[in-house]
């Protein structure tokens, strides 16, 4: 145990995701030895982020204004919505540069162990959007794990009756990879989702 401020800093850092006790100690001592100006900038950016950043009123993505830049962008196709779990998934899909619609960020997935049900996710907001806007297609892009699949199933059932096209991202082999390196589960899924080559 260190004294006072140092130990407090280590404890705070240790609460961050992916930071264990050893890393927390290392970061704390890095901060101690670093240039005071640099560290002041770090502290300011943490406070600014908490003060300024909020969630988009429409899609739930992070933004510094009432609505995010994607929702404000009039060039985006308003008839397609891609549903994702987190804001970081928006960035991932944006990197493809091939999706021109808008997003809806759920804020997680259905996970009873963590106490997250549909009420804790931004599903009601999604339904409101569907009644207001001229949306024709929903693409569900939740994670391909058990909780993400469960969320997709839940949304699929909910949206069934509304008359929009609902699709789910495909899962299977990574592009540019080798078949021999695919694990059994991925390869099994790829077999299930195989498609005809004759067009």
């Amino acid at each position: 145990m260190y004294e006072g401020a140092v130990q407090e800093l280590i404890d705070e850092l240790g609460r961050l995701p992916g930071v264990g006790p050893k890393s927390a100690q290392r970061i704390a001592f890095h901060i101690l030895e670093a240039d005071p100006e640099d560290m002041k900038r770090l502290a300011t950016s943490i406070t600014t982020v908490k003060e300024r950043v909020q969630f988009c009123e429409i899609c739930g993505n992070v933004t510094e204004e009432a609505t995010c830049s994607i929702c404000r962008d009039t060039r985006r196709d308003p008839s397609v919505i891609c549903v994702v779990e987190e804001s970081k998934d928006v960035i991932a899909v944006e990197r493809t540069r091939s999706f021109k619609g808008r997003y809806h960020v759920l804020g997680g997935s259905i996970n009873p162990i963590a106490g997250i049900g549909p009420e804790q996710l931004r599903i009601r907001e999604l339904m409101t959007r569907l009644s207001d806007e001229q949306i024709q297609e929903i693409i569900i892009a939740t994670d391909p794990n058990l909780e993400g699949e469960a969320t997709a199933t839940y949304l699929g059932r909910l949206l069934q009756s509304i008359g929009v096209t609902v699709s789910r991202l495909a899962s299977g082999l990574p592009v540019g990879g080798d078949l021999e390196y695919a694990d059994e589960v991925t390869l099994g899924r790829a077999f299930e989702g195989r498609r005809s080559v004759s067009s």
Binding site: I110, P112, G117, P118, E119, A150, T153, Y154, R157, L158
Partner: peptide, 8 residues
Amino acid sequence: AHRSTLDV
């Protein structure tokens, strides 16, 4: 709400 989640 419980019922619809349980269905999933």
